[in-house]
Design a binder for these strands. Structure first.
Length: 483
RNA sequence: GGCCUGUUGGUGAAGCGGUUAACACACAUGCCUUUCACGCAUGUAUACACGGGUUCGAUCCCCGUACAGGUCACCA
């Protein structure tokens, strides 16, 4: 078998979204698992839709995820250039167009866009699926000369065989067959502006770059027969294809750019404080599953165990709860400093040096339960608000018999406490137990509710210590007033 | 509409002719922690879309139905 060479070929018409990222990831894993090359090629032939920063977003975010490429626009390689516009300018595609034209496998179409539109409307009105009617497919020499003399511009169309079976063995879908008659007529390979269309450029580039396997989204599956016909027409080796199922939203629909039901751009996850390793892990589980029962895998391990035959045939549903869970698994493994770096951007930063140690201690309280960076903002509100308030459940608990006495005693002990360390607070609580004989849940829960206003939270004594004497006592007063 | 594809517990997802139909998340309970969270253990769950075949035997194979998705550009 020749060397495995795969590519991820984004068009810079948008930022890197979750579906792109998955395609890139699987290509990367497949390449590295097989000791092959992973190439990033920019497909920028849609000049009008290319957006500022699209290319950079693609590359930067891939890098953030930990995907590394062997050849690309930013590092070069032996098969450059790595963006199609540059390849077009270098005249790479011309030769092949000329060859197809000369062999009669393609022809120039002089129909104007308006003519085509009218024809399409007519076909639609008759209940047909619009497709090119082949008007220019058999022009006489004289007609051609006439159009040329008029200075009409043209596109180049590929002559699609009339009734031919095109099949291939797909890595994920197994045997797939299309009939050429179901394809939308003679399709363009060169646009009016002389730039090749996607279907044409991709074939030439994959051929020249010696791409061995094409792993892409299922939305490309109907392009594949067109591309295979082109490979055949030019007598080129057809790569092995694999069409991965789409990632769908909670409603089971394909992700669209406007879909707000889930966050779909990698950049946004980065901004929310998700960890790249966790995203890598999570995305890998979208439409693929490892053999065993584990689900948490690092990059190196994934490279080792990746198996393209385990790509799923049914759509991958984006499970946000799973993502949060996976991310938390990775957060827990962080060192204290790494963790603090992650959450700091989401905390108030205008603090003095003294306060910054306090802030770090507050943040540390939540390390084991934090799902993603931004979540810290909500988690720590207790430490920043002036007054607490109680929910129904807390009120109910605190209104049980004897709680007032417990709280009064706690308040007195805390007020008397010289230092306000976690240990001192523990001692204060213990003293209440000794004096009043309450213990366990009936001791700690009222203490927790009265000082923090919450029934659930991090380590109590540390929390109270960080809250400070003044606030803790004020909170207790408030709670007593509510009973 | 043509063509292509999918349908397994609340959610995600294994399974490829014979299984007590994995596992994870979520949920519940217990243990741990004098509370909480983490962790650990256990458990709940009328899960194989429906109808026909094939077979000694179908979640797994075939046909049909329903539902869902994809795609039919001078976009990629």
């Amino acid at each position: 078998m020749s060397k495995v060479r795969v590519r991820y070929a984004p068009s810079p018409t948008g930022y890197l979204h979750i579906g792109n990222a998955r395609t890139a990831l699987f290509n990367y894993l497949f390449a590295k698992h097989n000791g092959g090359d992973f190439i990033v090629r920019i497909e920028d032939t849609d000049v009008a839709r290319n957006i500022e920063g699209g290319e950079k977003s693609q590359l930067d975010n891939l890098k953030w995820l930990g995907v590394e490429w062997d050849e690309s626009i930013d590092m070069g390689g032996d098969f450059g250039p790595y963006n199609q516009l540059a390849r077009h300018e270098a005249g790479i595609y011309t030769k092949y167009v000329d060859q197809l034209l000369a062999e009669g496998k393609a022809y120039k179409c002089y129909c104007s866009s308006e003519e085509l539109d009218v024809e399409a409307e007519r076909q639609k009105a008759e209940g047909m699926i619009p497709r090119y009617n082949g008007k220019c497919s058999n022009l006489t020499e004289a007609q051609i000369a006439g159009f040329e003399a008029e200075g009409r511009d043209y596109t180049v169309r590929f002559r699609v065989p009339t009734n031919e079976e095109i099949s291939w063995t797909d890595i994920v879908k197994s045997d797939v067959t299309f009939n050429s008659k179901d394809i939308s007529g003679d399709f363009n390979i060169l646009k009016r502006d002389g730039i090749p269309t996607y279907n044409f450029a991709v074939v030439i580039d994959d051929h020249l770059m010696e791409i061995s396997h094409v792993l892409r989204g299922e939305d490309h599956i109907s392009n594949t027969p067109k591309q295979i016909m082109l490979y055949n027409a030019m007598d080129m080796t057809v790569p092995t294809f694999g069409h991965m199922t789409l990632i769908v939203n909670p409603d089971g629909k394909k992700l669209s750019k406007r879909d707000t039901s889930i966050i779909q751009f990698i950049e946004q996850y980065k901004d929310l404080g998700y960890l790249p390793e966790a995203m890598f892990n999570f995305i890998t589980l979208l439409g693929w599953s490892p053999v065993g029962e584990d689900e948490i895998f690092g990059k190196e391990e994934l490279i080792k165990i990746f198996d393209e035959t385990r790509l799923s045939k049914s759509p991958a549903k984006f499970d946000e709860a799973k993502l949060t869970w996976i991310n938390n698994q990775y957060v827990k493994q962080l060192s204290e400093d790494e963790y603090y770096d992650l959450v700091l951007p989401f905390l108030q930063k205008d603090l003095s040096a003294e306060d910054s140690a306090w802030l770090k201690a507050v943040a540390m309280l939540y390390k084991d339960q934090l799902s993603y960076g931004q979540e810290i903002t909500e988690l720590v509100t207790l430490f920043f608000k002036d007054e607490i308030s109680l929910d129904e459940e807390s009120l109910e608990f605190v209104r049980q018999e004897g709680v007032v006495e417990t709280l009064e005693a706690l308040k007195a002990n805390l007020a008397a406490s010289e230092e306000f360390t976690a240990d001192a607070i523990k001692a204060a609580i213990k003293a209440v137990q000794k004096d009043l004989g309450v213990k366990g849940k009936m001791l700690f829960m009222p203490s927790r509710i009265a000082t923090t206003g919450q029934m659930h939270g991090p380590d109590l004594t540390s929390s109270v210590s960080l809250l400070g004497k003044e606030k803790a006592i004020a909170n207790i007063d408030y709670v007593i007033s509510q009973i």
